[in-house]
Write a protein that binds this DNA or RNA. Structure first.
Lengths: 196, 196
DNA sequence: GCCAGTTTGGCAGTCACTGCCGAGTATCGC
DNA sequence: GCGATACTCGGCAGTGACTGCCAAACTGGC
């Protein structure tokens, strides 16, 4: 249908794909923020993005995935940041570094706030996020355990879960405060409250 | 319109209701454990329980609800146990009491294990549980905050989230260990790891 | 220009869940 | 005992997310 500048070396297919993907993602985020997640049917997103429903589902397997901020990169950054910490750094310091790294990869304050707001105010999205979070925890377990002397899986899991819980509490408060202040400050406050 | 029907009448209706309810619940749990949650359609449960799909959905609004262990009582017990703790008891002690009280209301070891196993091994159920958990946290916030001197909402949330995270880690480990040992011991171990 | 591999859209179907409606059934006033 | 009045049940159609299948359109190499 539409063919734009053909200067890239990547195949036309890839470029078209990427274009469509971005178009869908933007449309989805716009409609979600305008009318709410649950109130926005896939059919509408597909129509306004100019693709068929079938294609939309081929790009993004799930409605949740339309929220963007793909979980893959999230997990990679997290893992990388934590393992990049010096060996002398404690677990908590390493985890803090990971959390900070993840927050650093948001494109813009506004978009981050929009996404977070959506996430925090929609039960189904919240549930999905929590589930994904659990999978991250599993992936990070060995990394965290290695930084705790003679720790069991259970203990490492607990530490990890606590860190994530604080992250959640912090970002929730951040959203409730309309994005004012720093998330990391709140994160530190949470940890202090728990471990103090 | 509305019937004040507070008299403890025999109410054949109520009895039938309770009977059907139990029948459905048992059938559901059986089929879930036999073939898995996602692999068991509502239609099958309804048919084997001898009711129409429509009726099943009137009894339990959601497929998740068929897991039983209704969340209402759960929340009540939790709230009650925590507020029943003496004022001198710290937050952590009060929360521990709440957790213990909740675990005490399982009917049998086997049923509890079956439910937990299902919950633990099914992504969608896990997500749902996590969501419910979040709502409990919100309900308990004031109660917890009252036990923390000069605490902010954020700090209370963090403490609460940590307690629940430890509960999750503990019961997860308990399931992975086929129900051997005490959950509360693991819970304590988790908290020690975090706050130690 | 043609062939092979890929992508696309439409269509039908599954599954959870809801609204509506007519047909029962229990309960209450008499 | 007998309607009138709740209240419940089952079926049916519809929605919304999601999947499999298939034929048509497209891309890239020859």
């Amino acid at each position: 249908m539409e063919r734009e500048a053909k200067a890239g070396k990547a195949t036309l297919w890839d470029r078209t794909r990427q274009l469509a993907s971005r178009e869908i993602l933007e449309t989805a985020l716009r409609l979600f923020t305008e009318q709410g997640y649950d109130e926005t049917p896939i059919a509408q997103i597909a129509k306004e993005a100019g693709v068929s429903q079938r294609t939309l589902f081929r790009y993004f397997g799930t409605k949740e995935d339309l929220l963007g901020g793909n979980q893959e990169r999230f997990g990679q950054v997290l893992t990388h940041a934590i393992s990049a910490q010096p060996a002398e750094a404690g677990v908590w310091a390493a985890l803090r570094a990971g959390v900070a790294a993840v927050h650093a990869l948001h494109d813009s304050h506004e978009q981050a706030l929009a996404r977070f707001r959506l996430l925090h105010n929609t039960a189904s999205l919240r549930a999905g996020w929590l589930e994904k979070r659990l999978r991250f925890q599993e992936d990070l377990l060995p990394l965290v355990k290695a930084r705790m002397a003679a720790a069991t899986d259970l203990q490492a899991t607990a530490v990890l879960a606590t860190a994530f819980a604080c992250l959640d509490a912090a970002s929730m408060a951040w959203v409730d405060d309309d994005g004012r202040g720093e998330i990391m400050d709140r994160y530190d406050e949470c940890l202090a409250a728990v471990r103090g």
